[in-house]
Design a protein around this nucleic acid. Structure first.
Lengths: 218, 218
DNA sequence: ACTCGGGGTTACCGCAAGTAACATGCATGG
DNA sequence: CCATGCATGTTACTTGCGGTAACCCCGAGT
């Protein structure tokens, strides 16, 4: 029958695709985002054109890879975000989840955040105008939107809540990301300390803090 | 004399270098970060090897370019940060300065944030280990450190101020950056609204906000 | 037997980074 | 006045990568 036949093809193609992604994953994790298509194909035991048949171009492959990891990370973040606990507790545990993830697999993190953009096609006439951010790690955007939604669902800050929630979502995610990136590079303190410091920041300790004695005032 | 002679050479080389950077700037701003060395050389009225003599490799050129713009932006941020005003006012004006800058010249911003990293040398054996963040826009790091210093100089949050200041510096810069990136792409509100929303976030409105009625509680 | 389609390969194109080797102009020292 | 640098510039090349065209093989269906 047509249906079973097509199903078989589908699943076989999907399995192949998955195998290829696994191989690509290994190579990217080993060699960084500069891994060449040749290298990935070799790791998968095949040659380039097959990769192109499956993923179109390098951007497609990288996007597929990124989606996998992004989905996984987002799932665990959602769990932390949805846990039944006080708000501060939830915030801290979400921060900690993210930081633990990037700490455990910095190569994955690096790949997700700096995918070395795709737009390298020969006859490429894009890049014109305001396409800022189309490259810059979609992971950040997705996390931002996700957090924005949670904030909007749960918080009440009067009119304009929706707008505020989106700004805050992206802002908080950016804070977490930048602090995490810096922390991962310098390791100036433990993860717990970092989490506390960030949560304190979100809890308004910056605004409440006193001026330094002897300073220029203000 | 040796001294005057060397001085002459120095200044002439420096002038040349500056001219080349101007040309590179034009090309990068026009074509995006994918501008080829050939294109840049052509814009400068010369050929590739000269660029390589001056800047070593593409990474060198891009780094030099980035330093110029980064210095400029940091200078204006410092001004806003050092202005004699209330803390909230200073924070808002710093945020606004940054956002105005990226709004005015998104191409520059895009280039600074996603320099398409350099490490593409053939015999490249780096990228091994934990060098996360060596690529990721040094601009963010510099802004973070700068802000951290200002915070540490002016704020008194008891023991551990220094640690806290650095975390907060990088965190706030990341918040500003991510929110700005998102805002630049979607333009969901005016600059003033964005600035207020971010300042409100830093002022602890997230922690103070009430739970939404009818929600799952907490 | 044949042909048809999915999975695979070799060999190639175009392009950009980076380099070697060669040319030229302008100061200096004999 | 010639020769010797040395900075500045050029042409022409190599290497490596993304991407593609053309061909190949084998198992299934009629």
């Amino acid at each position: 029958m047509n249906t079973t036949q097509r199903t078989d093809q589908q699943t076989s193609a999907d399995r192949r695709r998955r195998e290829l992604l696994e191989a690509a994953d290994r190579v990217v994790l080993r060699d960084g985002p500069h891994a060449s298509m040749n290298a990935i194909a070799a790791e998968a035991g095949i040659t380039k054109p097959i990769l192109y048949r499956h993923f179109g171009d390098k951007g497609g492959l990288y996007a597929a890879l990124a989606v996998r990891h992004t989905d996984a990370l987002l799932a665990s973040l959602r769990a932390a975000l949805d846990a039944p606990a006080q708000r501060r507790q939830r915030v801290e545990s979400t921060l900690d989840t993210y930081l633990a993830a990037i700490e455990a697999r910095p190569q994955v993190y690096r790949f997700l955040m700096h995918p070395a953009e795709g737009a390298g096609t020969p006859g490429d006439q894009s890049e014109q105008g305001f396409d800022v951010g189309r490259h810059s790690a979609p992971l950040l955007r997705r996390m931002g939107e996700e957090l924005a939604q949670v904030i909007e669902e749960r918080l009440d800050v009067g009119p304009g809540t929706q707008q505020l929630a989106r700004v805050w979502g992206h802002g908080i995610v950016g804070m977490m990301h930048a602090a995490g990136d810096w922390w991962l590079g310098e390791r100036p303190c433990s993860r717990e300390e970092l989490v506390r410091a960030l949560a304190d920041l979100l809890w308004g300790r910056l605004a409440e803090a006193g001026d330094k004695a002897g300073g220029p005032g203000f």
